[in-house]
Simulated scan of single mutants.
Amino acid sequence: MLDKLLRKKTVENQPSISDRLTKVKSRTIPSHVAIIMDGNGRWARRRNLPRIAGHHEGMKTVRKITRIANDIGIKVLTLYAFSTENWKRPKMEIEFLMKLPGEFLTTYLPELIEQNVRVEMIGNFDALPLHTKEAIVKAIEATSNNDGLVLNFAMNYGSRLEMVKAVKEIAKLAVDNQIAIDEIDESLIESRLMTSHLPEPDLLIRTSGEVRLSNFMLWQLAYSEFSFTEVLWPDFDESCMLSAIEEFQMRNRRFGSVEGDKEV
């Protein structure tokens, strides 16, 4: 009985989401947060539900995390929605995943517009089904004048494919004598990436306990802080997001500089 009372008291003494949000906003806020949304299938399996139920629940989490990211003051939120490798999944699951952008954007587009959120996408757009492309284009156009949070969906995205595309473009410039070999540097490569107009991510979050990058923004994440959590994406809520930001704010980012006897 005493243990239960102590546990209850501990929960009651925890700061509210509102209080934590206020504190987070008083400190350094990551400009760009990237999230690998993982664990939808496991969430469904633990409940004896089909995998698509997990993806549908995960869509609701996208809404919650977009709202809290906007409240925090994050400038860019990039969500890994569908990778170039995900085409290997069962056909029925792929078809459902391709319908989700339309469902999400149709349902929440008025809210995104009201919150001054601008929708963008990185990835191989041309290979997407027509109905998926139409939903994405509609959202991009409807929010194009918004200047708040950029909600950037990585859809049919693969980092290696992105870098190969950049190398081919630069090689063509060299072949056409538009640039000299000595002009090829990091800035030129970055200018050819799909994220060239965005700041590099300050923080990467991956849910579900997996600790790998899965071909996601390999160039851009060179000096990002990583946060891995066991929480499955459908269960990742505002408190989890704040915890990741709070952890980020405790880190000392030196970008290779020397501090005392330590060098990173």
Rank of each mutant, 00 (worst) to 15 (best):
G54R: 05
N124R: 13
W87C: 09
C240R: 01
F236H: 02
E134W: 00
R251D: 14
K64Q: 12
K64C: 02
K60A: 14
F96A: 13
R51W: 03
K64T: 02
K133R: 15
E111H: 11
N177M: 05
R192Y: 13
F216I: 08
R27K: 15
P30A: 13
P30L: 11
K133T: 11
D38V: 03
P101E: 12
I140C: 01
I122H: 11
P234Y: 00
A34D: 02
M217I: 03
F255M: 13
L213Q: 10
E12C: 04
P110M: 10
P234A: 08
R47S: 15
T143G: 05
R47D: 11
E247I: 01
A244W: 03
I74Y: 02
F216Y: 14
M155Q: 13
E85Q: 08
R118E: 08
S16C: 10
R160T: 07
G209V: 03
H55W: 04
A142L: 04
A166N: 09
L77T: 00
D38Y: 06
N13L: 15
R67V: 02
R51F: 02
N152H: 05
L149C: 05
V264L: 09
V62K: 02
S26D: 14
R251V: 09
V24P: 09
L130T: 10
R47Q: 15
R67M: 01
